[in-house]
Design a protein around this nucleic acid. Structure first.
Lengths: 168, 168
DNA sequence: CGCTTTGTTCGGTACACTCCGAACAAACAA
DNA sequence: TTGTTTGTTCGGAGTGTACCGAACAAAGCG
């Protein structure tokens, strides 16, 4: 098993992370930067990330900021006392997915639900077309909110177990 | 309760759908077109959708195609025998979310899992850094795949019930 | 057969987004 | 102090996407 083979396998997985990043609304560079940090043994600084990824310093700076904001990587204010900033990856993918879920899906469901509830409050229940539709929407979104809220409190294993053991 | 109030409530909800569409990777126009169809009592043709939404005919044509492809709306080859194509909305929001899930999330998880499995197969288990990381990834993604597969077979109510009644 | 209506396709414009490089700020080293 | 390293910010080039209008195809109606 050569070092080359390991590097190739690593590269494939990182490419896959670039792909996934796009699916989750991030840039390819974000996927690569995360991937490099994911496989790195030690924390990396911005210049080191420039070397590893080939991206410009400014790109690294901007992308690390957003990755830090959404909790995919962590920023440590240097450990040698120097000015260098160090980054490490959150390696629990499940945590990351929960965060993305929370920030995008859950938020979207909540605002939609609020809009629907407000719209419904201003309408009478005279079963006109709009009124019925809005009622249906509200019910669905209340279910959704409950599901997402519960799911975000589970670990992946618990969630899997809950679904596998559920008897209809 | 005036017709105006109803129209205003309707408009608010449709705006919310435009927003949601963007979250799910669709265009705003897709959200509005779906929303108009969602509230419409009868099926609508392309010219009618042009009137209702203000979008250009070509935009309606393109967007209805993609909405039809992903199952958010249905296309009926005219019911008066004429050439007009009629569109109706899928009103079960849960079905739509399942489809989106299936097409985007599930697919992404599957390709990632395949990549990780292939990478792992080419590496020995000598517990080097890359090898460990890839093993962790594989486990997480196997859990994820199982969760998503199971969840996509549930109705919203069942899923909610499964989570609510699960005792850790 | 024209003429109208409907729907698709194609080229173009406007806009947002990604990434780069340069300029700048801040801290350390000599 | 001056020079060097690190990190952020800003302007711009390149690219993709949404949407529009025009041209075109296809079908019904006189």
């Amino acid at each position: 098993m050569s070092e080359d083979d390991r590097a190739i396998a690593r590269e494939r997985v990182i490419e896959s992370m670039e792909q996934s990043a796009e699916v989750y609304g991030l840039s390819r560079s974000a996927g690569r930067i995360y991937g490099v940090l994911y496989f790195s043994e030690e924390p990396l600084s911005i210049p080191e990330l420039v070397d590893e990824t080939g991206y410009a310093k400014s790109t690294i700076s901007n992308v690390t900021r957003t990755l830090t904001r959404i909790g995919m990587i962590y920023r440590r204010s240097s450990e040698g006392g120097g000015r260098r900033v160090q980054y490490t990856a959150e390696r629990e993918v499940w945590f990351i997915l929960q965060d993305v879920f929370q920030q995008y899906v859950q938020r979207e469901i909540q605002t939609t639900l609020r809009t629907v509830q407000r719209a419904q409050a201003q309408l009478p229940d005279d079963s006109k077309n709009e009124t019925e539709r809005i009622e249906e929407l509200r019910e669905t979104y209340e279910d959704l909110q409950e599901i997402v809220t519960l799911a975000s409190e589970f670990t992946a294993a618990e969630l899997r177990d809950a679904l596998e053991s559920y008897d209809r």
